[in-house]
């Protein structure tokens, strides 16, 4: 076999935007697994929480995060688990090992999604051009995550901090579309001469 040197690509790896009040770019690749099962089952939630290092029985539209992982609510029987330290196959295998076979599922979606960070004082205005969801702090405080629409793409919006900074999790194939959309509306907002 020929000499091999695998190279990793992400959909927006070269994309960055710096404008007055808006900074945007793609976050680093990380492992992501969707787990589904009966989250009323205390045994499942305790074993999964232990494995993830974070509580998985989070409230609707919220997430929890520490330096090495994050858990997002996706639905009553569904969570997304990020690991910032582990390889996707490792995370998947570990989570699967504590879940009841045949009555749950764990699926590697590390490549399925990428996330775009949108930060700066004008970030909310940029997001509001594409989403009907109200991203004002009173409706979308820190620790919130919602699945909604941006343009015509399905996305998950994550309120990272109130500086403000948001993450947009989007499917790989839609990433370029969402990025161009963000860039176009960011240009309207951030470069407008203040009058």
């Amino acid at each position: 076999m020929a000499e091999l040197n695998p190279v990793l690509h992400t959909p927006l790896q070269h994309a960055t935007f710096h404008g007055a009040g808006v900074v945007m770019g793609e976050n680093l690749f990380c492992a992501k697994v969707i787990v589904r099962g009966n989250f009323d089952d205390a045994q499942l939630t305790s074993r999964l929480s232990e494995q993830a290092g974070l509580p998985v029985n989070v409230a609707a539209n919220t997430f929890v995060e520490n330096d090495s992982a994050a858990v997002f609510w996706l639905g009553p029987d569904e969570r997304m688990i990020y690991s910032y330290a582990k390889e996707p196959q490792v995370l998947l295998a570990e989570l699967r090992s504590v879940m009841p076979a045949g009555r749950s599922s764990a699926v590697d979606v590390s490549d399925y999604y990428t996330t775009i960070r949108v930060g700066g004082v004008n970030a909310r205005k940029v997001l509001s051009a594409g989403t009907p969801f109200d991203v004002h702090g009173s409706n979308f405080p820190e620790g919130s995550c919602v699945q909604t629409r941006f343009g015509t793409a399905s996305v998950m919006l994550v309120m990272q901090d109130s500086s403000p900074a948001f993450d947009i999790q989007v499917r790989w194939s839609f990433a370029e579309y969402v990025w161009r959309y963000l860039r176009r509306v960011a240009e309207f907002r951030t470069l407008t001469p203040q009058s």
Partner: peptide, 11 residues
């Protein structure tokens, strides 16, 4: 019933 009140275009 799971996510709360949202815009019709999400449904």
């Amino acid at each position: 019933p799971y996510c709360g009140e949202r815009d019709q275009t999400e449904f």
